[in-house]
Write a protein that binds this DNA or RNA. Structure first.
Lengths: 146, 146, 146, 146
DNA sequence: GTGGTCTAGACCACA
DNA sequence: GTGGTCTAGACCACG
């Protein structure tokens, strides 16, 4: 759970923390039931105010990725294997995806290049070891639409 | 150039305007050199303050998608056919893509489903290709429509 | 009187015209009593609206550098040999000079480099040829007012 | 950090603030790393809206003279000892210098008088050198005062 | 007519 | 507490 922040970035610190944790869950680095450092501990490690960590954890809780209780601290509530997303998640997410992809296309990134980026990002979440027996859910290729 | 906003959304109005325009550029609805409504006009049409439109336009200008001058108003500066993105764009964009995709994966959307979403979003930007036989009026070459 | 503008610059066109004319007067390219192109003519030559030229001429008139009458058009009212500036000019000008020089110093340009810039700019106004025989109406020296 | 404005001047307040700060940096009154009053505080002190201060600070930030973060407010990012200016600064600056000096020359201020003005303005930024015997505390080396 | 400035109030995000 | 967002009115600059 090494979590590198960029102080002085445009992105608020609490969001950077949240983003890194989301990515850690996506990549399997954090699995359902796993525990995260206490807010105080992480704050000390990162050299930031613990309120900032708190805010990140709370955001993740509201997103359904963490559960938090007094005794055991923050635990991962969800991971890729937990099941399909809550209803309503996908629509809202696709809206954001649409805007993000539009941005690349508008700037002149070709459709294939965009898809390649998506595929390679996905591949980076499943570092080969997990693609064990059938590999039927890996970052498959060739279904490009254009 | 119908631009439907969701007042009362979490997303600020100026960002919604910006997002819709980015998507319009990506989809070829707006092409390089095309002109956008004047800030005041659009503001009246949308029933909002002109500053809000102004802010959206200014953001797009800073992103390199619009150029703005006093006489002719806002013109589209870039479209998918204009060329590859400025250096530095892709890296920053992929960082955001990574976070966005991680979000879906963490919520249990499978890699293939994610890729499908990406592909179908991209396809939605070039719907003409799916309909046309020769597809000679797609936003691929500089055949400006104005 | 070739006057090159940069359309699309941050600096308004009318100000660019004004600035170029001020520089032409400073360099002796335009002398007291000399006539400028008519607003319409210059507007056509530059491919701009004649109101814009008008605005530049009017500004110069208010600054005391031009006089304008219907029959003979715009005439240069002042040049370096006309005499010392109107009272009040110098103070206001030095305030602007102070800010401009402070900007360079704050950005790390050393005092000598700043002075060099000033000197070379001044030298560029008096292209050596004018300091010829008597040099009694050129940018004469030694009449420092301070 | 006393900052006297002239309400009712032609020059917008935010620009006056910006100019005074630039001059304070040039004169060594503000040194790299030094902190400025918070936007709200300064606004109260000056009896103006905090947005106006904000605008001045933001302009200075875009000029590279300030850095701004939420925790520590506005800090001086540059001062005469920080090093040479960013490439591109000098050219743009000399263009403005050229116009400003041309103005004086056109109004009849002699070249020597102009140069004198430049020199005395520069001298006013480092007044200590004119007083001190050894001049070992001038704003020449990185002897930050904070 | 256009876009942009200047100032501003209410509110939010951040640490 | 800090800076920043979002929206806004009145006015100016520009062509």
């Amino acid at each position: 759970m090494i979590l590198s922040l960029d102080l002085g970035s445009e992105v608020p610190i609490y969001l950077q923390i949240r983003d890194r944790i989301v990515e850690a869950i996506a990549s399997g680095e954090l699995v359902e039931g796993g525990s995260l450092p206490s807010t105080r501990q992480l704050a000390v490690d990162l050299g930031i105010n613990f309120h900032t960590v708190n805010k990140a954890y709370d955001l993740l809780r509201r997103e359904g990725l963490l559960r938090i209780n007094r005794k055991s601290g923050a635990l991962v509530q969800r991971d890729p294997s937990t099941g399909p997303p809550e209803p309503g998640f996908t629509d809202e997410w696709e809206t954001r995806l649409r805007t993000l992809l539009a941005e690349a296309v508008a700037h002149g990134v070709g459709d294939p290049a965009v898809l390649d980026s998506c595929a390679s990002v996905l591949a980076s979440f499943t570092p080969t070891a997990l693609v064990a027996h059938g590999a039927d859910h890996g970052a498959k290729q060739g279904d490009s639409a254009s």
